[in-house]
């Protein structure tokens, strides 16, 4: 007799499978409606959002962060990374969330829809960014001065 080839597929927890089956049923029900109009574009946005975040945005800011830490480390001030990282992260966050307004992408129809001037968002973002970096620099200077004062005077 020839030996029977058996491909063994591990199934996993039956409870988990049941839960996932329920979930996919709802995904299917809502999904066909989500994809009803322009299935390709919507699917592209849905999957693209995850891929763009995980494979582009996240590596980008991780690399930028590492560059800051390493260049400060090379200058012997690795512990000062936070003074750059915090204002940069907060400023980048505001830019990410309000990009359409800050970049002026919607400057055409924003005023006609709201009666408000579409200008000024860029200036306000730059101002907030300046305040964040300025505040961070001030904090660093104050802490450095305090550290210098607390240091015992050098022996002559």
């Amino acid at each position: 007799m020839r030996p029977v080839m058996r491909i063994r597929v591990k199934v996993g927890s039956p409870l988990q499978l049941l839960l996932l089956a329920c979930s996919f049923t709802l995904v299917g029900y809502a999904g066909v409606r989500l994809l009803a109009d322009d299935w390709f574009q919507v699917a592209l946005w849905f999957v693209g959002a995850a891929l763009l975040h995980d494979l582009v945005l996240l590596p980008l800011y991780a690399v930028a962060d590492r560059a800051v830490v390493e260049s400060l480390g090379a200058a012997g001030h690795r512990e000062r990374a936070l003074y750059v990282r915090v204002p940069a992260a907060l400023s980048a966050l505001l830019l990410l969330v309000w990009f359409p307004l800050i970049s002026g992408r919607v400057a055409d129809h924003y005023p006609s829809a709201t009666g408000l001037s579409g200008e000024g968002f860029l200036a306000r973002w730059l101002l907030i960014t300046a305040v964040l970096f300025g505040g961070s620099a001030l904090l660093l200077v104050l802490r450095l001065r305090r550290a210098t004062k607390q240091r015992p005077p050098a022996a002559h």
Binding site: D38, W45, R105, T114
Partner: peptide, 13 residues
């Protein structure tokens, strides 16, 4: 932000 670049009407999406 009135930036209607997404593919379709906001409500169903």
């Amino acid at each position: 932000q009135l930036d209607y670049v997404f593919p379709g009407s906001f409500y169903p999406l």
